[in-house]
C-alpha cells in the first residue's frame, strides 16, 4: 500500500490498482471460506475412509446436523442435485460443497421460528389441553406427513414425554428441546 501514496501524485499504475482492497468482496470471501470449512468439517465426520465421499444415506444427517430443517421431500431434491448417476450410492465432497454453499448463502431450509413450531403442536391439540398423549402422537406422526418409523417414534417419545408415568407431553417445554442449537 505504501506505493499508492506517491509524492508526485501520479495516478497509480495498473499493478497498484489491482491491489486496492474491496472490503465488501473481502468479507464475502471470508464468509465463503468460513462456510466451506464448516461444511467440510461436517462432511468429514461421515467420511470414514477419508476419500472425500460419504454414503448417500448419511446426507440427511449431515445437512440436519448443520442446523438446517429440510423436509424429507426437500432432502430428496438436494440429494438429486448432488448425486452422480455413475455412483448413486455416495456423494462426493465437491458436489456437496457446491450445492450446500449456495443453500447456506441463500439461507434456505432455516426452519420455522419457535412460535410456529408451538403453533404446530397447538393445531394437533384439538382439545386445547396444553399437552398431547402418546396415542395422539402415534396417530399423527406415524401415519401422516413424512411418517416416523417405529425406531424414530420410540426415540421421539423418550424425549417428548414429561416423565415415564403419565404418557403425556406438555409441548410448550418440549419445543425448547427441539430447537437446540448446533453444538449446544
Amino acid at each position: 500500500m505504501a506505493t499508492s501514496t506517491d509524492a508526485t501524485g501520479a495516478v497509480p499504475d495498473q499493478e497498484n490498482r489491482v491491489t486496492l482492497r474491496d472490503p465488501i468482496r473481502e468479507s464475502e470471501e471470508r464468509a465463503n471460506q468460513a462456510r466451506i470449512k464448516r461444511l467440510t468439517d461436517a462432511f468429514n465426520v461421515f467420511d470414514q475412509e477419508s476419500n472425500n465421499t460419504i454414503p448417500s444415506t448419511e446426507l440427511g444427517t449431515v445437512i440436519r446436523s448443520l442446523g438446517l430443517v429440510p423436509t424429507e421431500g426437500e432432502l430428496q431434491d438436494i440429494l438429486s442435485e448432488m448425486s452422480d448417476d455413475s455412483n448413486p450410492d455416495s456423494i462426493h465432497l465437491e458436489r456437496f460443497l457446491n450445492v450446500m454453499n449456495m443453500i447456506l448463502k441463500d439461507r434456505r431450509y432455516q426452519g420455522e421460528p419457535e412460535s410456529k413450531i408451538l403453533r404446530a403442536f397447538q393445531v394437533l391439540d384439538t382439545q386445547n389441553n396444553g399437552y398431547l398423549t402418546e396415542e395422539e402422537f402415534r396417530n399423527y406422526l406415524c401415519k401422516e406427513g413424512e411418517p416416523f418409523n417405529e425406531e424414530e417414534f420410540q426415540d421421539f417419545m423418550t424425549i417428548a414425554l414429561d416423565d415415564e408415568t403419565n404418557h403425556k407431553c406438555t409441548y410448550k417445554d418440549f419445543v425448547q428441546h427441539l430447537v437446540v442449537e448446533e453444538n449446544d
Binding site: I63, R64, G67, V69, L141, E152, L178, V180
Partner: peptide, 13 residues
C-alpha cells in the same frame, strides 16, 4: 405434522 417431524429429525441428527 411435517413441521414437528422435520424438527425432530434435525434434533436427532
Amino acid at each position: 405434522v411435517i413441521i414437528i417431524q422435520s424438527w425432530f429429525r434435525r434434533r436427532q441428527a
